[in-house]
């Protein structure tokens, strides 16, 4: 059976919120070391990879590998009932036909429970090569979100080019063009945390990506910073790392060609 307790239900809520527009149903593969989800969007343009480590849970136990086929519309309904400060306990028996959620308030004075029917999903798993990308950009997730939101009004394709000094996000629309150039820097945000933009370039790179998907994948609530990994003619990786070693959420987006 699976039993996992997260200190903050909001962690799962944010993850589901971030992927629900891309995937409608997916398998959560649970084993001793944690929970993994791999799923493509219906058009096979992007791939979502979620890895939650058992160590990041307050309590975690999974004595036998179990696959939980989840409908995201149903999951969203359940998670909407959790307050942000609630803890979340997930439970499933070995049959894998139901998933049980318990939300508990911090003070322990309110407990709510939900039972969700699971489904059998015939998922195609792809093997993701461990690539050493030519460009790695680490930046504030709020900044990335702002760039995508601003530029999405101008066209359907985002061009990202990087050299050793800067990264340029550009769009050319029918009637206008827009661009934002970022250079490496270090600033202090409202919470007095250091937010930096770092650009590591092994080779100058120029990629074209779907604006619609980038806008969906730019999400400032998942983590304070986001990492973009780029290389000519291969899928771009947009990665969010969760605090306390809980894991990562990766979005792979296939490039646009001529």
């Amino acid at each position: 059976m699976l039993e996992g307790r997260l200190t903050h239900a909001s962690t799962l809520k944010k993850i589901v919120e971030a992927v629900k527009d891309v995937i409608s149903e997916a398998n959560f593969d649970c084993n001793d070391s944690g929970i993994t989800l791999q799923c493509m969007d219906s058009g096979h343009v992007a791939l979502v990879l979620l890895q939650l480590n058992s160590d990041g849970f307050e309590d975690y136990r999974c004595d036998r590998n179990i696959t939980l086929g989840i409908n995201f519309a149903a999951l969203t309904k359940v998670l909407k009932c959790a307050a942000n400060d609630d803890s979340l306990t997930l439970k499933a028996d070995d049959s894998g036909d139901r998933l049980n959620f318990v939300f508990e308030s911090q003070k322990g004075d309110r407990v709510s429970e939900f039972d969700m029917k699971l489904m059998t999903i015939d998922a195609e798993l792809l093997s993701i090569p461990d690539n050493d990308y030519d460009v790695t950009i680490k930046m504030s997730s709020a900044e990335f979100s702002r760039i995508c939101k601003d530029l999405a009004n101008f066209g359907e394709t985002m061009n990202i080019s990087a050299d050793k000094e800067s990264v340029r996000f550009g769009v050319e629309g029918d009637v206008s063009a827009a661009s934002v150039v970022l250079r490496p820097n270090e600033t202090i945000d409202e919470d007095e945390k250091i937010v930096s933009t770092s650009i590591m370039v092994k080779k100058e790179t120029n990629v074209n990506l779907s604006m619609k998907f980038l806008k969906t994948f730019a999400n400032s609530s998942l983590a304070g910073s986001v990492t973009l990994e780029l290389q000519d003619d291969i899928p771009c990786l947009i990665k969010y790392v969760f605090p306390n070693d809980l894991g990562v959420l990766c979005f792979y987006l296939a490039p646009k060609g001529d």
Partner: peptide, 14 residues
């Protein structure tokens, strides 16, 4: 317009 490629042309089935 640019042609959108598929993720499956880069990542092969397991």
């Amino acid at each position: 317009t640019k042609r959108q490629s598929s993720i499956k042309s880069f990542f092969k089935p397991k």
